[in-house]
Design a binder for these strands. Structure first.
Lengths: 138, 138
DNA sequence: TTAGCATATATGTCGCCCACATATAGGAGT
DNA sequence: ACTCCTATATGTGGGCGACATATATGCTAA
């Protein structure tokens, strides 16, 4: 995690100003649900193991699922077949599938923007440039 | 820009929920300032032409520059040598240069995360997979 | 029995970044 | 005077993430 403040002072307990994947929870949930219906806690586990860099916040996850439901991207139903607390079973809707596809375009675009930045940086700081012309790099 | 709501209802005047480059204004400013001192309005122009996908918000830009100054990443001074309104000349500090380098690592990490998502998506939706085994894809 | 733990869902609060609107001011052209 | 361009700055509101906390079910150990 990085934050301008952290280079010269303490914390700022929150949300890492600076770069991070913002809003990637939604597409990850849509993608995981495309593989089959699931419930919040399980999605949390799958994200922990496979998806996001750091532990997704349960609060955010459940809020995001409810939001996706409000928007019609997923459909939920209570599942009380198993013992233990009732769980909400989420299922991807056709709209949700469309949304997932649309998301991918956005993500690819963002990735290209990051590439663009990294290229621009690489131009300003040529990696190990041993240049025969003798022009100074930095 | 994309927003779940936009697929089935109207607007939400603000901030594109969904994916976007979050917090990339800072590293872009640091990178541009590495090429030489500049002032806000000029940075805005350079970003418009070269950097970010969409017009950066002037308000955000000036706020970000002041924030970077508070954090010691840039140093500013008034420039009244030219006619017209006074302008603040921003210059990258050594700390700012360190910060830029740190940023690049973050950006690369995020890019890898986006790649990871795109790969996972590609696995779920194999591109044009004409599979000889005859197994249904979707 | 009751205390603790894992499972499972949910809300409160705060901070950051972004979008959009607006304010201020100097200088140039009409 | 009025408008436009340059240039900097603040107000306001929203979305998402981080962290804390509340709730309830069921199992197990003391």
């Amino acid at each position: 995690m990085m934050c301008a403040g952290e280079l010269h002072s303490q914390e700022q307990h929150c949300c890492t100003p600076g770069c991070r994947v913002h809003g990637m929870l939604q597409p990850w949930l849509l993608l995981l649900l495309h593989e089959g219906p699931s419930h919040g806690y399980q999605l949390l586990d799958r994200l922990r193991r496979d998806g996001l860099a750091s532990d997704p916040d349960p609060g955010l996850l459940y809020r995001t699922l409810r939001q996706l439901e409000e928007e019609g991207m997923v459909v939920s139903s209570w599942d009380t077949t198993r013992s233990g607390p009732a769980r909400r079973r989420y299922e991807l809707s056709p709209e949700g599938l469309d949304y997932l596809h649309a998301w991918v375009g956005e993500v690819a675009r963002v990735r290209n923007q990051l590439d663009h930045f990294l290229s621009a940086y690489a131009q300003s700081f040529p990696p190990q440039a041993v240049n025969p012309e003798g022009k100074g790099g930095d």
